[in-house]
Design a protein around this nucleic acid. Sequence first.
DNA 1: GGGCTGACATTGA
DNA 2: TTCAATGCCAGCC
Length: 118
Amino acid sequence: MKDVNERYRNFFQDVYEVVRQVPPGRVTTYGAIAHYLGSRQGARTVGWAMQAAHTLRGDEFVPCHRVINRLGQLTGKQFFGSPTAMQQALEAEGIVVQDDQVQNFPQLFWDPSAELQP
DNA sequence: GGGCTGACATTGA
DNA sequence: TTCAATGCCAGCC
């Protein structure tokens, strides 16, 4: 609370933290992360954080392939270098992806606000 | 220094 | 019911 301004600065950091907490075989959405951060409509910024995240690596690695839109579509697959890399990554974890769309999405959905408590 | 864009989501009509 | 407009933050021109 002392630094409300810093909270925004940690927005990316917080996004990475949440995405890293996503267990294998599960997926989350931009809105869920944004809601967890306190900004429902900030989902757009979360997507921007993902773009910056895919440039990171090593300790800062973020499983962006587990982050998709609420429609279950692999919107950012094109940023993985290969249009199927994201799908391959998800399938490797047991997630069924068909036509760039995650099957049983509601079942695989992982809500940080519900699973992860602040 | 100011304005636009971007891997989305929610609300209103 | 569906379509359109709005809101958010950070990076880039």
